[in-house]
Design a protein around this nucleic acid. Structure first.
Length: 565
RNA sequence: GCGCCCGUAGCUCAGUUGGAUAGAGCAACGGACUUCUAAUCCGUAGGUCACUGGUUCGAAUCCAGUCGGGCGUGCCA
């Protein structure tokens, strides 16, 4: 539908330009956008513009008069007349356009021809984006918020790629610092305990069951031969073990990273020093109380931040600064980070330090993924069988499966808290939105089967040449119009970085389809597969369009599109 | 105290850079269906968009303030 909209938009703009020069008015074109919008109410046409109202002041005429002037000009164009049935002025000065039937069916034709390419836009052409997400500490298994971040990040990456951006998925491993030391001491303590040696467990150490299991495993393999090793040995072992497990969990969840970037890389390559010197040269560093501070308040942060402690050890923030600089060094021009709710206070300093390093403010974007409240039997589900303190990602997947988990995690605005109803996600009924959408896809396959049972072969059916003029029921045209919105939905997701519009759209589309399908039960003339060969072929073309968009949409969500359920 | 997120139907949530009479799903209520095209279908009702003021042709949306909820506020990562 994007080309239909473009045509109308261009014509409106041309008319506005003409009128403004005649009236000698100075129009701020930016203030007119969006030129066109989808009306909520069907009586207001398929697409509408409110420019007449926006121009009232500059043109010194009533919105209604302006709408009339615009209409007079727009109606003169042959293209406009071929794609619209009606252009009406309504309400306070809206101009409502209704598409002609042939314009609508041409959308379907295009979808069938372009298939999964239909959603491609040039929204973010030329951007080289590095999307960093999950980046969980290598001190244990992934939890439910990590699972949400993984789903959101992966889907966002898919959508950005459809908008023509180059996207690199990265997982940052924080394998340096105090927590690593603490992890090592925790594992060593468990190892000694497993050998019946009485030792004190470190204060604030890692209590998870997985630590004990790991220690027992070490005893099985190496007996007591590791007693002489120091904690760093145990830490390294634990990190390798944990990261491997995280990787496996994420693969089962259909999330694959292009790189697993170790923090050690930053330290080994002397990148901290480079970044620090550059900040110093820019005059952003000062010394106080024996520490080196970054003047973060110059970029709107609450406090200045320590980069190098008085003992000479750089802070985490210093390392993270070097890491983010390194992303730019790897020639990415847009950094997107997905962080958990506990890190939002960190945004001003990160954004500030990157600006201090000479990067434009809009080249770094942080998305905050808020916490997840898992519900079971209507009650909060907080304790994990394995981890005790929190729910693991693998618990969620085991409970509801990868498909439902991913669908539910991206279904809501990611920067607000999510109530995740585990019981609902498991249901195989229409109440479950994930099932509902997948079922629409499966149902289309059963229609194909039905068609072949009638003695036809799908292989011989060329949908692109079907006579689509048969599709005249309002329900059929509504479905096609909805299909035509798909590229806009993706473009809007890619622009706002809000992915939840996609599952919503797929749900609404499926709903139109299920309702249409059900009509055939009451009104046999609307059955998709019938004796009427021409109608059957046209309707198969319609469901094929649906199958393409639903299948493609689900694939962007990383959710399977089953042929039967 | 300060910062971020949030407050829309009984519940969970949408609401397209400000647009027309604020929408879905669930639950509730009322019907249909005794069988089919696979996991019922159709309909009804339900609202002070937390509150107050402001901006304008127009505000759930933007601004200021108030109230309420969640999270954060390390030289941890």
């Amino acid at each position: 539908m994007i080309d239909l909209i473009k045509t109308i938009e261009d014509n409106i703009l041309a008319a506005v330009t003409q009128i403004s020069s005649e009236l000698n008015a100075d129009v701020d074109y930016n203030s007119l956008y969006p030129i066109l919008e989808f009306p909520r109410d069907k009586n207001h046409g398929d697409i509408a513009t409110s420019v007449a109202m926006k121009l009232a002041r500059v043109f010194r005429k009533s919105p209604h008069q302006i709408a009339q002037l615009l209409c007079d000009r727009i109606r003169n164009h042959a293209i406009i007349n071929s794609i619209t049935d009606a252009i009406e002025i309504a309400g306070a000065g809206f101009i409502n356009f209704s598409f002609s039937q042939s314009a609508v069916t041409s959308i379907l034709q295009k979808i069938i021809l372009k298939k999964s390419d239909y959603g491609i836009t040039n929204q973010r052409t030329g951007e080289k984006i590095i999307l960093e997400f999950v980046s969980a500490n290598p001190t244990g298994p992934l939890n439910a918020v990590n699972a949400r971040a993984a789903a959101v990040g992966d889907v966002l990456a898919n959508i950005l790629q459809k908008a023509s951006a180059q996207v690199h998925r990265e997982f940052y491993i924080n394998d340096v610092g105090n927590q690593v030391d603490l992890l090592g001491r925790s594992v060593k303590a468990r190892y000694e305990q497993a050998l019946n040696i009485e030792v004190e467990f470190p204060e604030d150490g890692y209590h998870g069951e997985y630590i004990t299991d790991m220690a027992k495993d070490l005893v099985l393999k190496y007996g007591s031969s590791l007693l002489e090793k120091d904690p760093s040995f145990f830490a390294e072992h634990a990190i390798t073990h944990n990261v491997t497990r995280q990787k496996t969990d994420l693969e089962k969840y259909n999330v694959r990273f292009d790189t697993w970037f170790s923090e050690k890389t930053i330290h080994n390559q002397n990148l901290l020093d480079c970044a620090f010197k550059q900040l110093q040269a820019g005059g952003y560093i000062y010394e106080k109380e024996g520490k080196q501070w970054f003047a973060s308040t110059r970029f709107g942060d609450d406090n200045d931040r320590v980069m190098i402690r008085d003992n000479g050890i750089p802070t985490y923030f210093m390392a993270d600064t070097a890491y983010h600089q390194n992303k730019f060094d790897r020639s990415f021009n847009h950094l997107i980070d997905i962080w958990g709710p506990d890190h939002h206070g960190y945004i001003p300093r990160m954004s500030g330090v990157l600006q201090a390093l000479g990067h434009p403010a809009d080249s770094f974007t942080v998305l905050i993924v808020q916490q997840v409240n898992l519900l079971k039997d209507g009650q909060p589900y907080k304790m994990s069988k394995r981890a005790g303190r929190f729910i693991l990602m693998e618990d969620v997947i085991e409970e509801v499966g990868t498909d439902a988990a991913r669908f539910f995690f991206v279904m809501r605005t990611s920067d607000s808290q999510l109530d995740f109803d585990l019981d609902l996600a498991k249901k195989h009924t229409a109440d479950n939105p994930c099932f509902y959408v997948q079922y629409a896809h499966a149902r289309i396959h059963s229609i194909y089967t039905k068609y072949e049972e009638q003695g036809y072969s799908l292989k011989d059916t060329d949908f692109s040449s079907a006579d689509l003029a048969v599709l005249s029921a309002p329900e059929e045209l509504d479905i096609i119009k909805k299909l035509g919105q798909y590229p806009q939905i993706l473009a809007s997701c890619a622009q706002t970085l809000d992915v939840h519009h996609l599952p919503y759209y797929l749900y609404e589309l499926s709903s139109l389809f299920h309702n249409y399908y059900n009509l055939g039960k009451e009104r046999s003339e609307l059955r998709i597969v019938s004796d009427n060969e021409a109608a059957t072929r046209a309707r198969l073309a319609l469901v094929t369009g649906l199958k393409i968009i639903i299948g493609e949409g689900l694939s962007l969500l990383g959710v399977s599109a089953p042929e039967s359920m």
